[in-house]
């Protein structure tokens, strides 16, 4: 039974990574940059939801919506102020800027909310499910997280496949000049991508803190790095890849924690990543189409 219960925690943790990884992968696909501040947007989302619930006594669902709106705006502002001026700069300059934004957000959070951990109260209102006479307990948070992840995955896939803006995003991610020549406003499309990724980060932050309730200004950084790893693992730029990578990473992490060693679990996660990249440099679902000349 511990195996199944570990598997469920793995899938649930992995679902959070997957939701975060979607933000990394969409932004990478479109702007060809690693938004290292993405993890910290999660933390901001969690704080905003925390404040809405703890100080304003708002119901969880309203708190989540407020957190999503706040993160959407934050994402658009970060992109507009920090990254847009660097659209033609070297990728190293963009990377360093992203790290700068990450530190800025962490320190701003420290200033606003202080370093004392906040105890996040779960947004999930119902009880855990107990199966097989209590031998297998599935937490309500796991169920909600996995369902949220599935809904987001389906929603995003439909969005990019079926809607005009979604198709425009795919066009921009493939070829910015050609997209511009089709009449697509590339800058607006990039903003929309940041907005969606950041709104998802808010959801991820709330779900993460509902399962692991300690909230501090660096709460987002480790999950951020792991989710980035998940995105690379699954094939950066690929939406199903982010999903698969996230869930596998969560499972690997929980299994290494319970069967091998808690201390080594992160090292094992990254070792698996390196192994996958050695065997398949584009990640599990990453594809490379050779250009015809």
């Amino acid at each position: 039974m511990t195996f199944i219960s570990n598997l469920i925690s793995g899938i649930s943790l992995g679902s959070v990574y997957a939701i975060i990884a979607l933000g990394y992968t969409m932004v990478y696909g479109i702007a060809k940059m690693l938004n290292f501040a993405h993890g910290d947007v999660i933390m901001v989302g969690a704080y905003v939801a925390f404040c809405s619930m703890a100080y304003l006594n708002l119901p969880p669902i309203v708190a989540i919506v407020i957190a999503m709106i706040a993160c959407t705006l934050l994402g658009i502002i970060i992109e507009g102020l920090a990254y847009r001026p660097l659209r033609k700069a070297s990728s190293l300059a963009v990377l360093i800027t992203a790290i700068g934004v990450s530190y800025f957000l962490q320190n701003a959070a420290l200033l606003i909310w202080g370093s004392t951990p906040k105890t996040f109260s779960s947004v999930v209102g119902f009880d855990s499910i107990s199966l097989l006479d209590g031998k297998l307990i599935i937490t309500a948070e796991s169920i909600v997280t996995v369902i949220a992840c599935i809904i987001i995955m389906i929603g995003l896939t439909l969005f990019t496949k079926k809607t005009r803006i979604g198709k425009g995003m795919r066009a921009v991610s493939e070829d910015k000049d050609a997209a511009e020549l089709m009449g697509i406003n590339v800058n607006v499309t990039i903003s929309i991508t940041f907005a969606i990724g950041s709104a998802l980060a808010a959801i991820a932050g709330v779900l993460l803190c509902s399962a692991y309730p300690i909230l501090i200004p660096t709460t987002g950084s480790m999950p951020g790095i792991k989710a980035f790893t998940a995105a690379v693992f699954g094939g950066i730029g690929s939406i199903p890849g982010a999903m698969l990578g996230g869930i596998l990473l969560g499972i690997i992490e929980i299994f290494s924690k319970s069967y091998i060693s808690t201390e080594l679990s992160d090292a094992i996660v990254f070792a698996v990543l390196i192994l996958v990249l050695l065997i398949k440099p584009t990640g599990l679902l990453g594809k490379k189409i050779t250009e015809k000349v």
Partner: peptide, 17 residues
């Protein structure tokens, strides 16, 4: 500069953006 990962139909749809 066609969109290599999109279908012919989708490329044409992009043209009518």
């Amino acid at each position: 500069h066609v969109f290599l990962q999109m279908t012919v139909q989708e490329n044409l749809e992009m043209g009518a953006y």
